[in-house]
């Protein structure tokens, strides 16, 4: 393994994007969707998640460290690509470009989002409840920032799922890759709905 470090890091990068980060993303958006069922539902669900045993250990090993690794290597991967969609405007080349573009947007969004919620809660400046998110998202600028952030994150996840399946040799033939494309479009639409619906609930109360 030592002599194949680059190979190992890239495979780990691909794996971490799906397990645990992708799983966490879907879980996070689904649990937040409780907001649509009312303030009390959300507070109960968020309180349950925040009150899990060993929550800080879970956060470090399931969320923080994997995202940190994925982000650092990801920025490097963005840096070494020379995008050429203008000359070679094929569908997959555009997805390649958008994967890098959404990766950077997602990184900015997540940094802001973590600062504004988890870190402020950790510092004792804010409390984890419905009104925290309501306060943030009723500001129209923040609503649009969150909308773009959530869509970008979900796109990066769905398209990353597609290339995960190629990188791990699950989808090899053109036909299987085509089916995977359709399936990941579906993943994008469904997970985006779950997330965006919650944002609308916080912002407009409907």
């Amino acid at each position: 393994m030592a002599e194949h470090r680059e190979f190992f890091s890239r495979r780990l990068h691909s794996l971490l994007g799906v397990i645990p980060i992708g799983v966490f993303l879907v879980q996070h958006l689904v649990v937040n969707h409780f907001a649509v069922y009312g303030e009390e539902s959300f507070n109960k669900a968020a309180g349950f998640m925040a009150g899990l045993p060993f929550v800080i250990v879970l956060e470090i090993f399931v969320i923080y460290l994997p995202i940190l690794f994925h982000a650092v290597l990801g920025v490097y991967i963005v840096f070494v690509a020379k995008n050429n969609t203008r000359k070679y405007g094929y569908f997959r080349n555009w997805m390649f470009y958008l994967q890098r573009f959404t990766g950077i947007i997602t990184l900015v969004f997540i940094a802001w989002h973590v600062w504004e919620t988890r870190i402020q809660i950790g510092l004792g400046n804010e409390e984890l409840n419905y009104s925290l998110m309501e306060g943030i998202l009723t500001n129209p600028i923040m609503f649009w920032f969150y909308l773009i952030g959530v869509l970008s994150t979900v796109f990066h996840f769905a398209n990353g799922l597609w290339s995960f399946m190629v990188s791990w040799g699950i989808t090899q033939s053109p036909k299987s890759q085509k089916i995977a494309t359709n399936a990941t479009v579906l993943v994008f639409l469904v997970v985006s709905y779950i997330g965006v619906r919650t944002l609308i609930q916080f912002a407009y109360g409907v």
Binding site: I77, A81, N84, Y88, Y90, R92, N93, M95, F96, Y97, Q99, W162, S163, V166, S167, W168, G169, I170, T171, Q172, S173, P174, Q177
Partner: peptide
């Protein structure tokens, strides 16, 4: 390889390069 898949589109000999890459990934 990050699967931009331009190679398979431009190959003048029509070689299934991306299938090869996925097979070698596995």
């Amino acid at each position: 390889c990050s699967n931009a898949q331009n190679c398979v589109q431009v190959c003048p000999k029509g070689i299934p390069l991306t299938t090869s890459i996925a097979a070698m990934n596995r």
